[in-house]
Design a binder for these strands. Structure first.
Length: 201
DNA sequence: CAAACGATTTTCT
DNA sequence: GAAAATCGTTTGG
């Protein structure tokens, strides 16, 4: 079943990040359906989190999406090249989000390979936030879409991830966040090949 | 209005 | 292992 608004509007973004592991992210873009199981996420706890774009209640045109009610997509362009896909959580005016960092390809693998200009399936196809977005066809113009729309949604296919297979670690690429960079806000499925290497693990 | 920078990936040495 | 690619957002003048 497709996750409903009540899944996203809960207040514990760290818990949601953990629960998203094993869920299936589906995109329907340009008439092509592609999907993959989420194997790696990161929580961004809004106002009090220096690594978040919304730290200190910073409200700009770009971050406005995060202040919405949970269940929207927040797509951000990084380094002018990479489209990073986030899920907005919590209720209106609380800018929490979960960055989806990696998936294990399920459907439409041939189209993902084509989008990424690759010949054969390797973990590099979807391991990492920029790579994953490219494979699924996600771009910044999808920001603000509801995750209940046809274009992008997340569903529960009954995949259960045992608690012992969920690993908590520090987030990637947020060294500038000082003490908040030490928080165990990154979660991934132990042993899964499609988990990104990151930089400091 | 101009300048600096980044929740990354790829490629070259 | 190191550096480049590349542009929207943010911040300062």
């Amino acid at each position: 079943m497709i996750l409903t608004e009540s899944f996203y509007t809960r207040k514990d973004v760290v818990k949601i990040a953990k629960e998203l592991l094993g869920k299936v992210l589906v995109t329907n873009i340009d008439g092509i359906q592609t999907s993959g199981m989420i194997v790696e996420t990161e929580a961004y706890a809004g106002v009090g989190d220096k690594a978040s774009h919304a730290y200190g209640n910073r409200r700009t045109n770009r971050t406005e999406i995060m202040f919405r009610n949970g269940g929207s997509a927040y797509v951000y362009l990084c380094y002018g090249i990479h489209h990073l896909f986030n899920v907005v959580t919590n209720v209106q005016d609380v800018p929490h989000a979960v960055l989806i960092r990696a998936i294990e390809p399920l459907e439409g693998i041939e189209y993902m390979l084509e989008r990424r200009n690759k010949e054969k399936l390797t973990p590099a196809l979807t391991a990492g936030p920029g790579a994953m977005s490219a494979a699924l066809g996600i771009v910044t113009s999808h920001t603000g879409l509801l995750l209940r729309d046809d274009a992008i949604y997340i569903e529960d296919r009954g995949i259960k991830v045992p608690a012992k297979d969920i690993v908590a670690a520090t987030r990637v690429g947020v060294a500038y966040a000082q003490e908040d960079a030490m928080l165990p806000y990154r979660f991934y499925i132990k042993g899964n090949k499609y988990v990104s290497k990151g930089k400091g693990l």
